[in-house]
Design a protein around this nucleic acid. Sequence first.
DNA 1: CCAACCAATCTGGTTAACCAATTTTAATAC
DNA 2: GTATTAAAATTGGTTAACCAGATTGGTTGG
Lengths: 235, 235
Amino acid sequence: MKLEILTKSENREIQNTIITKIRDLINFKNLEPGDKLPSERMLSEKFGVSRGNVREAIQTLEYYGILKTIPQSGTFVANIGVIAMNGMIEDILRLVDPDFKSLVETRILLELKTARLAALRRTNVDLQSMRNALDAYTAKVLNGEDAVQEDLLFHLAIAEASGNSTMIRLMLIITPGILTNFEKYHVCDVNQAFIGIQEHEDIYKAIESKDPKLAKEKMKVHFKMLYQYCYNIKD
Amino acid sequence: MKLEILTKSENREIQNTIITKIRDLINFKNLEPGDKLPSERMLSEKFGVSRGNVREAIQTLEYYGILKTIPQSGTFVANIGVIAMNGMIEDILRLVDPDFKSLVETRILLELKTARLAALRRTNVDLQSMRNALDAYTAKVLNGEDAVQEDLLFHLAIAEASGNSTMIRLMLIITPGILTNFEKYHVCDVNQAFIGIQEHEDIYKAIESKDPKLAKEKMKVHFKMLYQYCYNIKD
DNA sequence: CCAACCAATCTGGTTAACCAATTTTAATAC
DNA sequence: GTATTAAAATTGGTTAACCAGATTGGTTGG
């Protein structure tokens, strides 16, 4: 068989066609939750793609809870009905690289909540790691250095203090997209960094004094610039 | 070399140790953004693991934007400083399977927002797909059938109407965990399904009439039961 | 002395062969 | 006929070999 190296985009396209074919197979054969899919080898032959591609597509569907593979046994339709499955796969196929606006919008949403929860649940250990991140940030800014990393760590420390593992996970997931776009659009400037010191302090104090409402309010202030910027860029 | 099949948990443990070693390598060798990592073969030998394991660990770090691999060239440290990198890796290593409470908490947070945004941005097409999902849900409930799937589709339709691709993605990510836990804890009952019809209708009408505040409010009502249940189960 | 070029080498990506556990099948004993 | 058991086929998981593009170092022509 001919070998070829695929770009991320090409590979994604192949994955999507395989996912589509698996969906059609399930629908056409009326497979129900618990039923077994044909083996990976059989699917790769039927679809005319490599077994590796089939495995990758199956892993994606497993990630979203639609399939379930059992070693040395087979791949099974998860305990989720065909209707929900078709709806979810439709969304999965439509997934695209997120736009900056939606990333920022989501980040603000998440962080307003983590700030609030952190104020309710923060331990002394949480408080200390937030303090450390904040001090590192302040030191760098006052020294005229770039401090986006320390900024990020402060916000991650808040997420940890929220005690919500899912929100930490989601924050980590959207972080790369945020970072690359920050570079591309040059969102931060020096002035903002200086202002950021006080804003960070305000958030910290609110969380320290266990005032959820204030914490959320101060976080909102902190994101005001970003919010406006985000809603002014062209779509 | 001896072959062995690993469970998900064992594999995760290996991945974490490899990620740790990669982090230590970057720190010890003072690798900076843009610098090249040793080749996969070299790493696999140095760490005493298979090349496949190394690739998998690299892919994870790439997923979170910490590494960047270029075909036929090498794996590079992404344009993110060592400080942020160490902080993020620490969080990545700590990631665990999310608990039900954090999942529900996050879902409610996301959906209050998607409802609000949907009220602001919904197109007529969005409205129609929401209507379809709602009708399917109502029909099943009135027929005494289980309608969790249709319920899910209605909520996904709202997420789509929000016009925020990132939130759709996050919704899809947390959905599997929600579904499996719903089964495990038997959250839904028939009465709730009946009540759900009216609650869904209220949400739909609010979005239809482009009233963001009302949409959020009705969504909050819809989640009231779930919210209470979630905060009453033992941690 | 430098730039252009070429071949040897190294890289991540891909495939095919292999492994062990499972499942199915068939043969056998009762 | 039925239950039991063993062997053969099938499964997803894993590894080692291979591929083509990128890199590198040395060589050559100017």
